[in-house]
Design a protein around this nucleic acid. Structure first.
Lengths: 339, 339
DNA sequence: CTGTTAGCGCTTTCAC
DNA sequence: GTGAAAGCGCTAACAG
């Protein structure tokens, strides 16, 4: 039914080994024979069975990519960029979407990637146990989220500096009551919200602004969460005049809440996000831009390099540039700010 | 190094075949032995090599998913939903992101999925040749985009009805100059824009409104494209008082263009989108909602069913419900008409 | 219910 | 430069 390597060998009048060598571009095959084999293989529509060649060689030419939620812009964008790099290098991508706790648990107990992939790119932050499980695969590991982790090549951004630029911008505009909508701080191993919170506190302290815990709310990294969080912040006795949201999606939720409350942005309340979501520009959201696709591509490249040079010491931590993008959701506090 | 089936067999004191049967839940193994094998396999951390079992059985337990652009909300969402269904059923997902023409071409000439997958879900519309290539794989095929195609199970929506509800809504509000921002109409095999355009023309004709070709612009399914298209529409001598965009992303681009031109929505211009993007609600965009995740999940389910019942005649075309969601970007035309 | 025997379709020594 | 032979780790008859 389907054409195998022996079919090609027979049709060309050579052995299977020669066909194998020729098609994989290995040395030790005369140009004449190689050409003939290539032609005939093409004519027959031959494709080597990945299962068979993996079994024989131990190489799978497949990369496992683990994602918390493909549908979310951030992860979709990272995945998109990484996949391009992998496929350009001849690798296939096995996708694992670990949105729910059950799926995630199942993945880490059954480890379906074992013996199936040459490397793993994780877009979720594994806890200690998960991280141990991944290391036990014995393949190169990379991630684009969270801080440095043993065994992983981490491509990230300077969360502290990014947050600092955002909050400092609000301070410079004259705001003193600055709220923060944070990502789910419940997860211990998820360092990003922690890092960003620290920077927020640092800037406040530096500006001599007393920290008010009532001005912090959890937005769960979603639009809805951001909306709820903003409502909470508006309910306190002295609401903030500016809000820093740890992601653009939460910032968008905040904008919606503000609109529902008939509050004008930036006149009544200023909002800064984080990410530079593809739609941030549409909405005119001031935000901290990070190279999302860039991080995915870079992580993929570093993984491929480790596959090419297994001996070399892999880079442990790469930081990509961030920058504050000023748009239309920030202004001095009403009615009298400096300037 | 890595533990194989014979390691488990030896440790349990049975043969490899028995281990294989036991672990795959096949009949013909005593409960006692099965338990022992399961325990020992778990203790040893054994996972069957997919390459080896695929090679031996011919089944890969892998589904190929072909996507034009994972980063785009629509495709990310469909993929997310489909992946959940597949992984819940024990299938892995091989992702092929075919954004650029070169990648796409490479995929269809090399057909890396040959002998690698049990079925294919395509989120891009294959042309005649590509569709032939996919059929030649000899596995079940499904898609969530475009109209009925031989050899494919198509899960879609009624594009004509959806568009009709959107455009009729504008007509009912009293609009007479209704523009349309369409998806890339350049691609022949991409029936969606064609279908939606036909519905647009039908509603106009039905309402006795003469069609003005100057009121149509191409938005390429992107935010930027939508923005450009809106600019074009604003540049004509008598601009539209309402615009129907064939996707929410293009509608968002249109909104941006309008804001730049200091035109109020919906006071000066009404805008309707299509999709019910996750952020449509944030922006207050009136749109035609379609069950995006629902289509992905349904297509995945139908594919799995075909795998379970190879004999049964697969469904050819399934239509999912759509509905018009009224929000804040549509209103009756401004009394004096636009400038 | 369990073990033995052949492969599945490649890659990889090792001869020649 | 090329071929023969021996697996890779599993599953699928076929015995018993």
């Amino acid at each position: 039914m389907t054409v195998s390597i022996t079919d090609v060998a027979r049709a060309t009048g050579v052995s299977a080994s020669t066909v194998s060598r020729a098609l994989r571009g290995q040395p030790g095959v005369s140009d004449e024979v190689r050409d003939r084999i290539t032609t005939i293989a093409a004519r027959l529509g031959y494709t080597a069975s990945r299962s068979a060649s993996s079994l024989a060689s131990g190489r799978t030419f497949t990369i496992g990519v683990v994602v918390p939620y493909v549908g979310r812009w951030f992860f979709g964008t990272v995945l998109d960029a990484a996949e391009r790099v992998f496929s350009a290098a001849g690798y296939d991508v096995l996708l694992y979407n670990l949105g729910s706790p059950e799926t995630r648990k199942r993945f880490f107990t059954k480890m379906p990637v074992r013996k199936r992939v040459d490397a793993v790119l994780s877009l979720l932050i594994p806890d200690e146990e998960e991280s141990f499980a991944l290391r036990s695969l014995g393949v190169p590991l990379a991630t684009t989220v969270g801080g440095p982790r043993p065994g992983f090549t981490v491509v990230g951004i300077d969360d502290h500096a990014g947050t600092e630029s955002a909050v400092r911008h609000l301070v410079n505009l004259g705001h003193r009551r600055i709220g923060m909508i944070s990502g789910s701080s419940g997860l211990q191993h998820w360092t990003t919200p922690v890092e960003r919170r620290r920077a927020y506190l640092d800037v406040l302290a530096d500006a001599g602004i007393e920290h008010d815990p009532a001005l912090e709310a959890d937005g769960d990294y979603t639009v809805e969460g951001g909306e709820r969080a903003m409502m909470e912040l508006l309910a306190v006795s002295r609401p903030p005049t500016a809000v820093f949201a740890q992601s653009d999606e939460m910032a968008m939720g905040a904008l919606r809440a503000l609109r529902r409350h008939r509050l004008k942005v930036p006149d009544d309340v200023s909002v800064v996000g984080f990410d530079d979501h593809e739609l941030a520009d549409v909405i005119g959201l001031t935000t901290v831009a990070q190279p999302v696709a860039g991080q995915g591509a870079e992580a993929a490249r570093l993984l491929l390099r480790q596959l090419d040079e297994p001996e070399a010491e892999p880079p442990r931590h790469v930081q990509m540039p961030i920058r504050l993008v000023l748009r239309e959701t920030t202004a001095p506090p009403y009615p009298r700010g400096p300037q």
